[in-house]
């Protein structure tokens, strides 16, 4: 159990590391180029892992409805946007606003896909998130600090 907790927590940290690295690359090149490198490097690694452990291609892997194969292009836009954002407003603000958008978007998507009414607790959560976004919006992002040392 403790291993799984550490694994899930570190995985979250690595999401941040990935965003930071792509953001650094975007500063010297372009956000879309950083996104391209991110996908190419990830593809190479996953191909190597797939070849090493096998079982990459299951029967019927390619027989799903066409739209489920479009997560990749959506991801390219996502990584490009976040690589640009992090250089502008920093890691903390990027992370919290991306989380806000993700949770609000997730609730909307669930609602559209399942038609199930949004629970009272979720509604309360949405109110808190929107309030948080407004508070962030009213405050200028912290400006980069010059190193005095």
């Amino acid at each position: 159990m403790i291993e799984a907790v550490v694994l899930a927590f570190v995985a979250g940290g690595l999401v941040g590391v990935s965003r930071q690295l792509n953001g650094r690359l975007a500063v010297s090149t372009s956000a879309l180029f950083a996104s391209f490198c991110n996908h190419l490097v990830g593809f190479a690694l996953l191909t190597a892992i797939g070849l090493a452990i096998g079982g990459l291609l299951r029967d019927g892997a390619f027989s799903g409805p066409w739209h489920i194969y479009f997560g990749g292009p959506v991801g390219v836009v996502f990584v490009a946007l976040s690589s640009w954002i992090i250089g502008q407003i920093g890691a903390t603000r990027s992370t919290m606003l991306i989380i806000a958008g993700q949770v609000l978007g997730g609730v909307a998507l669930d609602w559209v896909l399942t038609g199930k009414p949004v629970s009272l607790a979720a509604l309360g959560g949405i109110v808190l998130i929107v309030a948080g976004v407004i508070v962030a919006q009213r405050q200028r992002a912290g400006t980069p600090v010059k190193d005095e040392s």
Partner: peptide, 20 residues
């Protein structure tokens, strides 16, 4: 612009997680 882009990126992330 960056704040709005971050919110939009988050929503895209939800869509991506759903599709994947």
């Amino acid at each position: 612009a960056a704040n709005l882009a971050a919110l939009a990126a988050g929503a895209l992330l939800s869509l991506m997680v759903h599709l994947n």
